[in-house]
């Protein structure tokens, strides 16, 4: 087990043993974000967890992009970043509105679609 202190090595493809842990971390972060979304009641924290899921996706994208030796992964992540920013702006605006309505940030205040 040789510790690799390599930086900037983008000229060759990653072996599977190197790629796998990145993907595992990405999956773990995604799952953690998902669990957070499902279990927390605070609207803002819920959105934060969605951002965490974005992060995980971005990591997977970069890892696979590196695996396939193009820049497409990184380009994609830039756009994901873009969209995440836009979405965060909208989401927070909506959260503020919702908070004004009910004076609470709890997601349980909004159950009117109950069937």
């Amino acid at each position: 087990m040789t510790p690799m202190l390599t930086l900037g090595v983008s000229e060759y493809a990653l072996p599977a043993s190197v790629l796998a842990p990145y993907l595992f971390v990405s999956a773990a972060m995604f799952a953690i974000g998902l669990i957070g979304f499902l279990t927390r009641k605070n609207l803002i924290i819920m959105f934060l967890c969605t951002e965490l899921m974005f992060q995980a996706a971005g990591l997977a994208l970069i890892a696979f992009g590196r695996h396939h030796l193009g820049e497409d992964g990184q380009t994609f992540v830039i756009f994901v970043l873009c969209v995440a920013a836009a979405e965060a702006a909208m989401a927070l605006a909506l959260v503020v509105l919702l908070f004004r309505r009910r004076e609470t940030l709890s997601a349980e205040a909004w159950k009117e679609l109950k069937g």
Partner: peptide, 14 residues
Amino acid sequence: SQSGVLQGYAAGMV
């Protein structure tokens, strides 16, 4: 399943 709770729907999707 139509509980109106946001996370319920999310759990369903998952």
